[in-house]
Amino acid sequence: MSAKERILQALQSDTPPAEPWQSRVETFAPDDLLTSFTTAWEGAGGEVLWLGEASKEAIALALGATTKKVVDTRHEKIDEIAPEGLWAIVEGVFGVAENGAVWIEPKERYPRALLTLAEHVVVVLEKRRLVPTMAQAYRKVDFSTLSYGLFLAGPSKTADIEQSLVIGAHGALKCTAVLV
């Protein structure tokens, strides 16, 4: 008998449930999704930028990135990453009002590593694409086509030294949500 079968035999819980498990918690939506989202995002160390139009040029100009390397994953194909001083613009599929998380899926259009190697990650999000809580968020993710995807809430951070919060651990040092 294989290790798997021995473990499963020890567990003795092979019967499927009568019906699939479903969450029945009633969730309370924040009064104003947009305010709740921006407050949470900024609380997590992220910055917010309001733009009417989110072209690469408009974003670069608004963020003062003229001399920086900016890649726009919405239109450019990226194979190689030179992380030094790199800014990456990525599409945010939708945001979560209760905690400021944004769902991001590279979909093999750009390397997964871009999201952590870039010094500044700029997430473009349509402000009408907000859900109240994670309960609605997980119903929105399409797992059937997913390879790798994440909820990102601001720049990487750590408080491992005496509980002092330091922004910029291993991933992005800076993270901006561009709301259009």
């Binding site: 905690n99 997964r112 797992f143 790798y148 994440l150 909820f151 809430a153 990487s156």
Partner: peptide, 17 residues
């Protein structure tokens, strides 16, 4: 930690190419 969510909540469904 009292955060509303961790900064990265990442889902791996397929190996990378």
């Amino acid at each position: 930690t009292g955060q509303a969510i961790t900064t990265y909540t990442s889902h791996f469904r397929r190996p990378k190419p």
